[in-house]
Design a binder for these strands. Sequence first.
DNA 1: TTAATTGTGTAATTATATTGACAGGTAGAT
DNA 2: ATCTACCTGTCAATATAATTACACAATTAA
Lengths: 290, 290
Amino acid sequence: MPLHDITVAQRIQDGFDLLTRAERQLANVILENYPVSGLGSITALAENADVSTPTVARMARKLGFGGFPEMQAQLRAELEATISDPLTKHDKWATGAPDTHILNRFADNVIDNLRNTLKHLSATEFDETVEMLANTEHTVAVVGGRLSHTLASYFFTHLQMMRDGVTLIERNSSSWPHYLLSLKEGDVLVMFDMRRYEQDLMRFAEMAQARGVRIILFTDQWGSPAGKFAEKKFHSRIEVPSTWDSSVVTMFILEAIISAVQSQSWEQSKDRMEELEDLFGKTGLFRKFV
Amino acid sequence: MPLHDITVAQRIQDGFDLLTRAERQLANVILENYPVSGLGSITALAENADVSTPTVARMARKLGFGGFPEMQAQLRAELEATISDPLTKHDKWATGAPDTHILNRFADNVIDNLRNTLKHLSATEFDETVEMLANTEHTVAVVGGRLSHTLASYFFTHLQMMRDGVTLIERNSSSWPHYLLSLKEGDVLVMFDMRRYEQDLMRFAEMAQARGVRIILFTDQWGSPAGKFAEKKFHSRIEVPSTWDSSVVTMFILEAIISAVQSQSWEQSKDRMEELEDLFGKTGLFRKFV
DNA sequence: TTAATTGTGTAATTATATTGACAGGTAGAT
DNA sequence: ATCTACCTGTCAATATAATTACACAATTAA
C-alpha cells in the first residue's frame, strides 16, 4: 500500500506506542478535533497541545513525513477526499463501518437511553442525594446484586477516596446480617438492583429501613421491588441490542454523583487524595505519572 | 448579525459583482473546492487560480478580513463547525436543571468522549477482537489495575456467561506469576490499564507476550506503556469535569464487544445461559424474573 | 487620442513559520 | 547511587509566507 493511503490518524494510532509523552499529548490534540486542529500553523498546533514547535516537527518526521508542511498537506488531501465522498457522511459513529454495525447500533441505543434517563431524572433529587453522600456525620454502605456488584464496587472505590466511613458489603448475602448491625439510624445505604431483582436485596432493604437507615437505590426503568423502602431512586434505561442489559447509563449517573460529591466536599477530599497519592507512591506499586 | 456568522462563501457570493476579473477567477477556484482549496498557503492558492499573491491578499481585505490569514482562520472555523456533528449538542439533557448543572455538563462531555473514541476506533480491529474472544480453542484471562479492576471484573462476569475457559486474574500482583504459568501460546489476555499506569501490568504484559500470549489492551487516550506488547488496543477518551476519569466509554466498548461475541457464538452461549439460569434458579438465591 | 482611473503583476520588505543546534532535565539501567 | 540515553524545551538560523510599494497595463471618459 502506498504511503499516502494511510491516513495521518491511522499512522498516529499505529505508532502510538513509539510516541513519547509530549508527542502523545500532541497526538491527542490532533485526534481530538481531527483533522481541523492540524490545519493551522505549526506554532498554533504546538501551543494548543502545550508542547514546543520542534516537538511537532519531530513527530511529523517520526510519522514518516518529510516535515510538518508535508504532513499538513496530507491532512488537507484527506479532508478533500472525505468531503467529496458522500459515502462517508453517512457513517455515523465508527468511521468506515456501516450503520448496521454493532458499534453504531449500540451507540445510537446508548445515547437514547441516556437521553431518556436524564429526561426523567430530577436535578433536585440528584442534588439531595449528593448532599446525603457528602455528609460525613453518617456512614455509607454500598451493596449490589449478582451482576450489579461491579457497579457497587466501582462506586465504593471512588466514594472511599473522598470520605471516611464507607463500607462495601460483600457479595455473599449470608454475611449481610452482620453489616446490618453496624448500620445506625440516619446512616445511608446505597443499593444496586437491576432486572432479575434479588429477593435478598429486598429483604435487606426492608430491614435496613426498619432501623432508620436511609436508602439510595439504583435500579432500572422497571424498578426493583426494593424501591418501596428507598428514599432516593435512580432509574436507568438499560436496554441495548444484546441479550444482557447495559450498565453504561447507570455508570454515568454514578460518575456524575461522584463528581458532584467531590466538588461539594473539596476541602476534605483534597487532603485525602493527597494522602492516597502518597501512599500509593510510597508502596512503589504505582507510578504517579507517565 | 456579527461578521463572523457570514461564511466566506457567502461573502464572496454577496460581493461577486464588485470583484474584478482576476478576483473572480480566484473566487471561482475557492468556491470550486470549498473550503479545502483555501486552506493552503496564499502562494499555493494564487498559483492554483493563476493570479498573483497580492490579488489574493487584496481580495481577503475586500471581503472584510484583516488579511489572508484571517480569512483562512475563518475557513478553518467553518470547517470545524461543519464537521463536528450538531446532533447532540445544545440539547439540554436533564430537564429542569440549568445548562451548567453537573448532569448536563457531564452528559455533553461523555457524548463527546464517545464520539471521539468511536471516530478513531477501527471497525475491523473491533471485529478481529471479537473473533479472538469468541474462539474457544484458547483460554481468555482478564486482568486490571487498581482502579480498572472493576472493569476487568465486569467484563469477566459477562464473558464467562458465554464461554468456557475464562479466568479473572486477582488484583494482587504477587500472584500473577502463577497465572502466567497457565497461559499458553495463542491464549488471550485482556488487560485494563488506565492513567496512572501500573508497572506491574506492563511487566506482566511483557512476560505474557514472550510466552506467545495475544494481548488485548483497554487503555485511555494517552496510552498505557503496556501498549507495545498488545496486539489489539482500544483507546477510550476518559476526561470529564471531575478529578477522576470516566469509565463510561470503556464500558460502552466492553458491552459492544460482549454483545458481538455473543451473537457470534450464539449456539454455544444459548445453552450456557440456560444452564446458568437453572443453576441460579435452583440455589434459590436469585429469582429468575419478577 | 489622451488623460485619468483602476487593475494587476513584479520585486522588495516585513512578518511568520519551520527547522537545527544545543543544553538541561528526567527516567531507566547498572 | 551514579551513569547513560533519550526527551524536550529554548534560542538561533533559515526558509517561507504575506504584505507593501511601485510600475506598467488595461480600461474608460473626455
